[in-house]
């Protein structure tokens, strides 16, 4: 169920189509996953849409990607600066 929701938001009926279970059984599963904090439920018109809750996960992933590039670039800066420092020391104007 979580795998399906990782692709797209689905209504409880959409979800039920993917399982060999009754709609009330699917509803029960959804309720438990919602209580456990894995999915969000939003009412749109007469349908209930289920969405995988991954906001925090995505933002942390974005930060990790950001810092990885950040440090690579900063270390390069440091190397350039150290090289410059040496040049000035060796060839003072």
């Amino acid at each position: 169920m979580l795998m399906l929701l990782s692709q797209d938001s689905l209504t409880i009926n959409n979800l039920a189509d993917n399982f060999d279970m009754s709609r009330p059984a699917v509803s029960k599963h959804v309720k438990i996953l919602h209580t456990a904090g894995f999915i969000a439920i939003e009412d749109v018109g007469r349908e209930r849409y289920c969405t995988l809750k991954k906001d925090g996960f995505d933002e942390l992933h974005a930060w990790l990607t950001y810092f990885d590039q950040f440090w690579a670039s900063k270390l390069k800066n440091l190397e350039n600066l150290l090289n410059k420092h040496n040049d000035t020391t060796r060839h003072p104007n």
Binding site: A36, G37, F38, K53, D55, G56, F57, E59, L60, W63, L64, F67, W71, L75
Partner: peptide, 21 residues
Amino acid sequence: EVFLDHRGFEKAENLDFYNGL
């Protein structure tokens, strides 16, 4: 030789969910 280690990432708001995951 320089070793940089950046770790212990915690998202305060979603920590419980993240740990669960």
